[in-house]
Amino acid sequence: MLAKPTLIAASLALGLSTFASSAEAHRRWLLPSTTVMAGEEGTITVDAAASNGLFVFEHRPLGLDDLVITGPDGQRVEPVVIGSGAYRSVFDLKLARQGTYRIAIASDGMMGSYELNGERRRWRGSRAEMESAIPEGATDVRVSENVARTETFVTLGAPNDTALAPTNSGLEMIPVTHPNDLVAGEEAQMRLLVDGEPAVGLELEFVAGGTRYRDEPGIRTLTTDANGMVSLSADEPGLYYLEASAGRGEYEDGPERRLSYTAVLEFMPL
C-alpha cells in the first residue's frame, strides 16, 4: 500500500483535459461602469456576477474574497465594497493615480478526497494546508488544483503598462495592444500564458455582450499561435467577453490543475 505522500505525489502527476466549454457553464465577469476616464481623479463602480446571458443579472453574484486590484504604480488598491445581492456583488474603485488599473478576482485552491477507515472523505483548502489536512493512513488520495482569473481593465488619463505585468501563475492574458486602447475595426494582439510560458494552441471564445437579444450568440472560437498570441477584432464598438480554459497537462508535465481565464474588454468607436 502506498504511503500518503507517495499517493499525493502520484495524484498530482496526473494531467487534465480541457474544461467544459462556456456553453456548459455560467460565464463569470467583472463589468466596470466605464473603462476610460479623464481628469485628475475619478470613481468607477464594478459589478461582479455569473450568468448565462452576457452582462445580465440572472444567476448569482461572484464572491469578492479573492479580489485583487493593481494600480498604475504596481501597488495594490483597496476598493469600497458595497455588498452582494441575489445576482451580483458591487464595489466602487477610486482612481486616484493616472494610468491603468487591473481589476481581477484570482483564486487558487486545492480539492481532495481520500479513504480513511473505510470511509470516503473530502477536503478543500490551500496547497500549503494539503499535507497536514490529509491524515496519515489515508488511501486512494485524489487531489486537484483550481486556478481561475476573472478580470477587466480601467484607465484614468494616459494608459500605462505597469499593472499589466504577468503574475506567472495559472492561465492569464498579457495585452500586447493596450486593453484600454481597443478600437472597433482594428485588430488587437494579446498573448496567453500558462505559468509564464506561452499557451500554444489554446482555444478561446470571443463574443460581444448582449447575447440575450440575439438569436445566435455570435461566439467566435480563436486559437493561439506558437507564441501564445491571438488576434481579436470587433466589427462594432461595445463590451466583449473573452474566455479560455484548459488543463495543465496540455502544456507540460505537472500537477493536475484546472485553469480558467475570463476578461471583459471594451472596443471603442473608430
Rank of each mutant, 00 (worst) to 15 (best):
E203R: 15
L202A: 13
R214N: 12
M110Q: 15
P175R: 02
R27T: 10
A133N: 10
S113G: 12
D108I: 00
M268E: 15
T100P: 10
F57R: 09
T18V: 13
G209M: 02
E243F: 11
A226M: 12
E115R: 03
Y101W: 05
S245A: 15
E186P: 00
R120N: 12
R120A: 13
L182E: 12
S233C: 10
N160E: 13
P32W: 02
L232P: 02
L164Q: 08
G39L: 05
E151T: 09
T139F: 02
L116F: 08
A226C: 03
F57L: 15
I134K: 06
L265N: 05
I103M: 04
R212A: 15
E205D: 10
E151H: 09
E119D: 13
L204N: 08
F206E: 07
E205I: 04
G53V: 00
L116W: 05
L14I: 09
G249C: 07
L232V: 10
R121D: 12
E172K: 11
A49I: 01
P198N: 10
V176Y: 00
L270D: 14
T6H: 10
H59L: 05
S233K: 14
E151F: 07
S51I: 00
E250V: 00
L164M: 06
T155G: 05
G118L: 07
R97K: 14
E205V: 10
L232A: 12
P159F: 07
I219T: 11
I105K: 01
L270R: 10
S17K: 02
Y87P: 01
G196C: 09
L30V: 11
L62R: 05
L156D: 11
L164I: 09
V207C: 12
I44C: 06
E250I: 01
G42Y: 00
N160H: 11
A10F: 04
T18Q: 11
A50Q: 15
D235F: 02
A234P: 04
T155A: 06
T177V: 04
A199N: 07
L95D: 05
A128V: 12
R120W: 06
V200L: 01
Q189W: 06
F55E: 13
A9P: 00
D108F: 01
S260D: 14
R191N: 11
P179R: 01
A128Y: 01
S17P: 04
F91N: 07
K94W: 00
V176N: 01
P61A: 10
G185S: 11
R220F: 03
R88G: 05
L222D: 08
P159I: 09
P237C: 02
L2N: 13
D92E: 13
L67E: 04
G201T: 06
T100I: 02
H178T: 06
P72C: 10
P217A: 12
T224F: 02
V46R: 04
T18W: 04
G228F: 06
A25G: 00
A25N: 13
T223L: 13
Y240R: 09
T43M: 11
M190D: 12
A138N: 07
